[in-house]
Amino acid sequence: MNRVLFGVCFVIAMPVLAQSVEIITEFNGLDIEWEPLGVEEASSEQVDLKGTPAVTVINRSNERVLCEFAALPDETERTPTSVLEPNDRAVLEVPGKYSEGGPIALLECVKD
């Protein structure tokens, strides 16, 4: 699946523990890749994400980008903005409290 989006939003279901969190991505024409983390096996010496819905975001563009998550529908709960240099990666936690079937989170990246 091509993960490069050119100003188009789409929805992908991300399995998280026994639930499903839907993530809408908006990459504004930037070459951004992302992959889900936070499943029971996802922890390392540096980061313990056991049971935490999170994603790895990779900046494949030649631009410096800013990425952040917002919990939908009201977008009042947000993650801190991550600055990614070209070919840099960051781990972002999915904000909000999720129950079966909702809410959705928006992952947005823009040129810095």
Rank of each mutant, 00 (worst) to 15 (best):
K50G: 05
L37E: 02
D48R: 10
L37W: 02
W34E: 02
P53E: 06
S44Y: 05
E35T: 12
G51T: 08
G29W: 03
P53W: 07
K50H: 11
V21L: 01
E22T: 13
V39T: 14
E35A: 12
I23Y: 04
S61V: 09
G51P: 07
V21F: 01
V47N: 03
V57F: 10
V55D: 03
V39Y: 06
E45H: 08
I58S: 05
E35W: 06
W34F: 15
K50M: 12
A42I: 05
I58A: 03
L66K: 15
I23P: 04
E41M: 09
G51A: 13
W34H: 11
P36D: 04
E45L: 12
R64H: 04
P36C: 03
E22P: 00
L49E: 04
S44F: 10
G29Q: 03
N62C: 02
I58W: 03
P36I: 04
S61I: 08
V65L: 04
E33L: 12
V21W: 03
N59E: 10
A54W: 08
E33Q: 07
I23K: 07
N28C: 13
T52A: 09
D31L: 10
T52Q: 14
S44G: 15
I23D: 05
I23A: 08
V21Y: 01
T56R: 15
E40P: 04
I32W: 06
F27T: 01
E40G: 09
N62Q: 11
F27E: 00
E63W: 00
I32A: 03
F27D: 00
G29Y: 02
L66G: 10
E35I: 14
R60I: 03
L30P: 02
E63Q: 13
E41S: 13
I24H: 09
N59M: 11
L49Y: 00
F27R: 01
A54T: 09
P36H: 04
G51I: 03
P36G: 02
R64T: 15
T25W: 01
T25V: 08
I24V: 15
V55Y: 12
V65G: 01
V55Q: 06
T25N: 04
I24F: 06
R64F: 00
S61A: 12
W34K: 01
G38Y: 05
L30Y: 02
N59I: 13
S43A: 15
P36S: 13
L49C: 13
N59R: 00
E40I: 14
P36L: 10
V39Q: 14
E41K: 12
E40H: 14
I23N: 07
G38A: 12
F27Q: 00
Q46M: 07
V47R: 06
I32T: 03
V57C: 09
V65I: 15
E22M: 07
W34P: 01
L49D: 04
V57D: 08
I58D: 05
I58M: 07
I23W: 05
W34D: 01
Q46P: 00
A54N: 08
I23R: 11
I24E: 12
P53T: 01
S43Q: 15
S44C: 14
N28P: 04
Q46F: 08
V65A: 06
V55S: 07
R64Q: 10
G51Y: 13
E63H: 07
N62D: 14
E35N: 06
V47C: 01
G38W: 08
E45C: 06
L49M: 09
P53M: 09
T56W: 04
S44W: 15
D31W: 05
I23C: 11
G29A: 10
D31V: 12
V47K: 10
L30A: 05
W34M: 05
